[in-house]
């Protein structure tokens, strides 16, 4: 009796202690969860606002990725805001306590200029990405030179096309940066092709509908059989158009020059469906934009233009890109 009672006392005492310990641990872990929710993490020093168009395209996602990378490295907290479509974020930027703004000005130039001027007046430094407002804008710019972009496109057309070259170029609302400087792009193309163009460039445009390019491509191929080269300035448009080309069994007869370096595009180039592609580096753009803004805010002065470059992808170079899948190449603008 004595030993049974003693053993039971010890056993239940141990179980009581164990239960109490686990219970305490549980309540502490719950408190930690609550604490984590309340406290957040990190103590950065700067707060920058990034204003990008509201869409989910790869280009902007990569820009965000690059910007976050730079933000982490430079201890800068980034808040991302929409721009365009009547949003007030950029209007309210100067009241929001940010230390700097990175803006993709996908709004009318005069409006953009006014808001950016207000920001400057309020002492908020601004860096523009992939989109210039005017040649004499005082705001530093990070992105590609669209004239160079046009020249690269022209070089690819010159390499693969057969005379007379009947070229159609399709802009897109999904790549407003290129569309905004379409004159520079076309000038670049003309500079590369010169007299080889059989007629002037045929200019088209798609909207934000991702399937819009299919219809447009179909119309071009049906209604304008003379066009033997089509240039796209957006990755989604490129993929949609390529599918139409395959469906209409016109691969090889009509050359498509795409935009971006996504895996399907590289596959199409390798198979010869696409003649080539033009790629910019959105991650680099985002990264360099934060870096430039930080420099501008800290030192009061920075480079006025950072060219992140344009890359031409052909069948000869695609293998190299496929072997390096982690390379920071993005989609279209």
């Amino acid at each position: 009796m004595k030993y049974a009672a003693k053993a039971a006392t010890l056993l239940f005492g141990a179980l009581f202690t164990l239960s109490l310990g686990i219970s305490l641990y549980t309540i502490l872990s719950m408190s930690q969860l609550s604490l984590r929710t309340a406290e957040g993490t990190g103590v950065p020093v700067r707060h920058y606002g990034v204003y990008l168009p509201v869409n989910s395209y790869t280009f902007f996602q990569d820009v965000v990725t690059g910007a976050k990378l730079a933000g982490t490295e430079l201890s800068c907290g980034l808040s991302f805001h929409p721009i365009g479509d009547g949003t007030l974020d950029l209007s309210m930027a100067r009241y929001s306590g940010i230390d700097g703004a990175i803006v993709f000005p996908a709004i009318p130039d005069d409006q953009a200029r006014r808001l950016l001027t207000d920001l400057n007046t309020s002492g908020v430094p601004v860096v523009l990405i992939e989109h210039t407002i005017a040649n004499d804008s005082p705001w530093p710019f990070v992105g590609t030179n669209n004239f160079d972009l046009g020249k690269k496109i022209g070089e690819v057309i010159a390499k693969i096309g057969t005379d007379p070259l009947h070229v159609a170029i399709v802009y897109s609302d999904k790549s407003p940066g290129i569309y905004a400087e379409r004159e520079l792009v076309e000038m670049g193309i003309l500079a590369s092709l010169g007299d080889r163009l059989g007629r002037s460039l045929s200019v088209r445009k798609t909207d934000l509908n991702p399937l819009d390019a299919e219809d447009l491509t179909s119309q071009i191929l049906r209604n304008e059989p003379s066009i033997n080269t089509i240039v796209f300035t957006d990755t989604n448009d490129t993929l949609s158009a390529t599918q139409v080309l395959i469906d209409m069994n016109l691969v090889g007869q009509v050359q498509i020059i795409g935009f971006g370096a996504d895996r399907p595009i590289l596959d199409y180039i390798e198979k010869g469906v696409l003649a080539g592609s033009i790629a910019v580096n959105p991650k680099e753009i985002g990264y360099r934009a934060v870096q430039l803004l930080y420099e501008l805010e800290q030192e009061g002065i920075s480079e006025s233009f950072v060219d992140t470059g344009v890359q031409v992808i052909t069948r000869a170079s695609v293998q190299e890109l496929q072997d390096a899948p982690s390379q920071d190449l993005g989609g279209g603008a």
Partner: peptide, 22 residues
């Protein structure tokens, strides 16, 4: 509210700053 790497905290900071400005 100090600047933070947490986006939600930054949003909260912006709201507070907007209210102060307002």
């Amino acid at each position: 509210i100090p600047a933070s790497m947490d986006p939600e905290e930054l949003k909260k900071r912006e709201v507070f700053m907007l209210i102060h400005s307002y």
